[in-house]
């Protein structure tokens, strides 16, 4: 799949944002007054920036509100509702923390509900991808696990610097490893093939593409990453996204500085992971284009 920057930024930022927001809602980082304003503000900023980024890849963003209508069937629509619910439910928690420190909504029922919406948002986001049978690498329980683990790690780095965050980072690393390991070869194992795509038997091969020019489907759904490149990026994703932040969390004294220092590599790693998440995902439509598509685009 085409690794579109807007979608990568969207999932990464909203992952950290809602992860952090959820952590704040849960009261994992007790903040009050100005600190609460800053913390919640940051969480909101990240989450909303992510959501805004997601509209950049829309053909008609002015109609984005329509995306709320199909919550009964569409994970994208549900994600919309969940994110609004999470943002809305977190508002009293944040306001309370900032202006009525005595109210202590975080960590209590209202906070728990708001956090649940945050988790739900992440889950919905992940399900947008996990639901797609057309992309076997995504169509798997590892996808929600991966997204939730990243949100947890990001949230923990910001909210709970220290061993807990280190553990969360390692969990996200584990989720990555799991997703890589179980994802590799799933496309092939799923059984779809040019033969099934065309019904023309096992000895079929694309001869000529329908058009010599590229098209939307090819650009959007058929992307090739060189093996070497992918391996390097996986190491970066693991190292920067999970290893380094975990290390920093363990060695640095918990605090703002630690959070900030760990968040930077973590985000970089998350971006790498998300880039790979898209770029390495093979869509079954590729069976129709096969290598001919590469030749047509000169990427072989």
């Amino acid at each position: 799949m085409h690794p579109a920057p807007s979608v990568i930024i969207f999932t990464v930022l909203s992952g950290v944002g809602f992860g952090f927001l959820g952590a704040l809602d849960l009261g994992l980082m007790p903040v009050q007054g100005g600190a609460a304003l800053v913390a919640f503000g940051l969480a909101y900023l990240l989450a909303v920036a992510g959501l805004v980024a997601s509209t950049f890849h829309l053909g008609n963003p002015q109609r984005a509100l329509r995306a709320f209508t199909q919550w009964r069937t569409s994970w994208l629509s549900r994600e919309g509702w969940a994110s609004v619910a999470a943002l809305a439910a977190s508002a009293p928690v944040a306001l309370a923390a900032a202006f009525r420190p005595g109210m202590m909504l975080a960590g209590h029922l209202p906070g728990l509900i708001a956090a649940a919406f945050c988790v739900l948002t992440i889950l919905c986001t992940s399900m947008i991808y996990a639901q797609l049978r057309t992309v076997p690498r995504w169509h798997h329980w590892t996808t929600p696990v991966l997204f939730l683990a990243f949100a947890a790690a990001g949230g923990a780095i910001l909210a709970l610097p220290g061993p807990v965050a280190a553990a969360a980072c390692l969990v996200s690393g584990g989720a990555m490893l799991l997703a890589f390991a179980l994802g590799d070869g799933r496309f092939a194992r799923q059984g779809q093939s040019p033969a099934a795509a065309t019904g023309l038997g096992p000895r079929v091969r694309p001869f000529a593409p329908p058009h010599t020019s590229p098209n939307y489907v090819m650009r959007e759904m058929i992307h090739h990453v060189g093996r070497k490149h992918a391996r390097r990026l996986r190491l970066i994703a693991l190292g920067l996204g999970a290893g380094l932040p975990a290390l920093l969390m363990l060695v640095l004294p918990a605090g703002l500085l630690a959070s900030a220092l760990a968040l930077i590599p973590h985000l970089a790693g998350a971006l790498a992971q998300r880039w790979l998440f898209f770029a390495e995902a093979e869509h079954v439509v590729g069976h129709y284009y096969g290598r001919a598509a590469d030749a047509a685009r000169g990427t072989a």
């Binding site: 799949m1 890849h57 829309l58 053909g59 008609n60 963003p61 109609r63 984005a64 329509r66 995306a67 569409s74 994208l76 947008i128 639901q131 797609l132 049978r133 057309t134 992309v135 779809q192 098209n215 939307y216 489907v217 959007e220 759904m221 869509h283 079954v284 439509v285 129709y288 284009y289």
Partner: peptide, 27 residues
């Protein structure tokens, strides 16, 4: 008139049957 051009439906189609129009931004 209702399409926001998110492209998700094209991802969901196994057959590559949907193309987003680059000028109109609709599927």
């Amino acid at each position: 008139d209702a399409c926001i051009g998110c492209g998700l439906c094209a991802w969901a189609c196994p057959y590559g049957a949907r193309e987003m129009d680059a000028a109109a931004g609709v599927m």
